[in-house]
């Protein structure tokens, strides 16, 4: 290492076609990346690869549905200065658990960085490794309370 370049975000990033972003406008970023934090861990069932035939073996089919994220007080028609909705966010996990959380401004904006990807045909000399900032995130969804049981 001793010196590794870190490239700032490219203007007009998120050039890839991103699916519709279901998050409230405030949490949306050009690349679609957002941060979610919770106190605790999510236990996932082991993925059984033999269940999946090759043609379905894509990233999407390996996703494990966790639950639903709900912003009960948010409405896209609310004026942006109305921030009351940020106080309550639900994350329904599985069928019987609900986490209550909130949207919080990060004390410092957080950069999401990754190894820089080179377009094909670009030869990288030696072991030169470069990083890039993919996104700068300013908000997070934080769940700091214990899950409550809910009826299905």
């Amino acid at each position: 290492m001793p010196s590794v370049p870190l490239h700032p975000p490219v203007k007009g990033r998120g050039g890839f076609v991103s699916p519709a972003n279901p998050l409230p406008q405030l949490l949306q970023t050009p690349s679609g990346l957002a941060l979610l934090e919770l106190q605790g861990t999510i236990n996932l069932p082991p993925i059984n690869l033999s269940d999946t035939s090759d043609e379905h073996l894509n990233a999407a089919s390996l996703e494990t549905p966790i639950g639903r994220l709900v912003f009960p007080d948010h409405s896209s028609t609310n004026p942006p200065e109305n921030t009351a909705w940020m106080k309550r966010v639900y994350l329904y996990v599985g069928k019987h658990q609900r986490l209550t959380g909130e949207v919080r401004k990060l004390p410092n904006p957080t950069a999401v960085i990754r190894r820089k990807e080179y377009s094909q045909g670009v030869t990288v000399l030696g072991e030169a490794e470069e990083l890039e900032i993919v996104e700068i995130v300013r908000w997070k969804i934080l769940f700091s309370q214990r899950p409550e049981p809910v009826g299905s």
Partner: peptide
């Protein structure tokens, strides 16, 4: 805490009904 970096995902046709809308 667990920190997750989330991104909108393509609705998944093979998923259960509830997860066929735009998700994360």
């Amino acid at each position: 805490n667990s920190i997750f970096l989330i991104q909108p995902s393509q609705p998944n046709d093979t998923a259960e009904e509830a997860f066929r809308s735009p998700g994360l």
